[in-house]
Amino acid sequence: MLKIQSLTKFFTAENETVHAVDRLSLEVAPGEVYGLLGPNGAGKTTTLRMVLGLVVPDEGIAEVAGIQTSVDPFAAKAKLGFVSASDGVYPWLSVREMLLYFADLYGVPPETAETRLAELAGVMDIHGLLDRRAGSLSTGQRQRVTLVRGLIHDPPVMLLDEPTRGLDVVGVQTIFRYIGHLRETGKAVVVCTHRLDEAERLCDRFGLLHRGRLRHHGTLSQLRQSTGREHLVEMFDDLMNPTLTETPA
Rank of each mutant, 00 (worst) to 15 (best):
T112E: 13
S86V: 13
I67N: 03
L105R: 05
S84W: 05
E97K: 03
L54A: 13
T69W: 01
D87F: 15
L130D: 04
A103L: 02
M98V: 08
G66T: 09
V51A: 03
Q141E: 14
A85Y: 11
L26G: 04
V64G: 10
A75W: 06
G128M: 06
R132I: 00
A62V: 00
L48S: 08
G35W: 07
S138L: 09
L54K: 10
A103N: 00
L36C: 09
D87R: 12
R133N: 04
E119Q: 13
P109D: 06
L80V: 04
L130R: 01
E32R: 07
T45M: 09
L48M: 14
L37S: 01
G41S: 08
L26F: 15
A118K: 11
D104Y: 11
L93I: 02
Y101K: 02
L100I: 00
V95H: 02
V108R: 02
L105P: 02
A121W: 01
E97Q: 15
D58T: 10
A118N: 12
V55I: 13
G107Q: 01
G38C: 12
A134G: 02
G66K: 07
Q141K: 05
F74E: 14
P57D: 10
L129T: 02
L93T: 00
A75T: 10
Q141A: 05
E111S: 15
S84A: 06
G35A: 14
G81S: 09
A78W: 08
A62Y: 03
Y34M: 14
A29F: 11
G38Q: 06
T45Y: 07
L48H: 09
L117Q: 04
R49Q: 13
G66H: 09
G88D: 14
H127Y: 10
M50I: 11
G31C: 13
A65L: 08
P39K: 01
E114I: 14
L100T: 01
G38T: 13
D125G: 04
P91G: 05
